[in-house]
């Protein structure tokens, strides 16, 4: 029974949402919008649970003095401080909240993003090895694209930049589209399997 109820809800709502996609009538649109509103309400409740989990995890860590526990103080105080500042002073462009957002959070985000350059270099060094025929082809294509897009490329051959561009536009695009076809069918199959109750891993098993 505990399993059957979620399965019935999933099947019912799944079929209704599919029908909603096909029916443009205002009643159908109203239904779609109501379901979306329900999702927003559920997400808000879930956020309360999630924040509860965050607070519980970090306060336990502080209490038990686990590894690197001072960072948990930073996390919790940051969360509380930003909430108070946001509620008290608003989030207008000139507010303290926005100032902190633009001058602390945005640069921190940029810093994390910038780390990509370092990680790309070390990952490329480690993995771009001509271990097999396929790996060698990949390596050759990567070399042509990298050199072709660099200013040095034209000194090696004036045709190299155009060839690099061709690799991006034709073989690269073709393989991406091939993967996307598979992804599309996988998505449809997953959705149908869940709606029809064939896939039950999300409920913990087959029973």
């Amino acid at each position: 029974m505990k399993r059957r109820i979620p399965l019935v809800i999933c099947f019912g709502i799944g079929i209704l949402m599919l029908a909603q996609f096909m029916i443009p009538h205002p009643i159908s649109r109203e239904f779609g919008s109501t379901v979306n509103k329900w999702y927003i309400v559920l997400a808000a409740f879930a956020l309360v649970l999630a924040i509860g989990n965050l607070i519980r995890h970090h306060s336990t860590k502080i209490r038990r003095k686990k590894t690197d526990w001072p960072y948990s103080i930073v996390t919790l105080s940051g969360m509380v401080a930003m909430s108070i500042i946001g509620f008290a002073g608003g989030i207008d462009p000139d507010s303290l909240y926005q100032t902190i957002y633009l001058n602390v959070l945005a640069p921190l985000g940029s810093t994390m993003f910038a780390l990509l350059a370092y990680y790309m270099a070390s990952a490329a060094y480690r993995s771009f090895r001509a271990r097999s025929l396929e790996a060698t082809l990949l390596l050759a294509a990567a070399f042509i694209v990298m050199i072709g897009f660099m200013p040095f490329g034209q000194y090696i051959s004036p045709r190299l930049p155009a060839f690099a561009e061709w690799i991006m536009k034709v073989p690269n695009m073709a393989s991406q589209r091939g993967i996307m076809f598979g992804v599309a069918f996988g998505s449809i199959a997953t959705a149908l399997k869940i709606i029809l109750g064939i896939e039950r891993s999300w409920l913990g098993g087959k029973k």
Binding site: M120, A121, A124, F128, R129, M146, I147, F149, M150
Partner: peptide
């Protein structure tokens, strides 16, 4: 990019 190409060549 040149550096990355060099280290990849060295690695290979």
């Amino acid at each position: 990019h040149l550096l990355i190409i060099i280290i990849i060549i060295l690695g290979n």
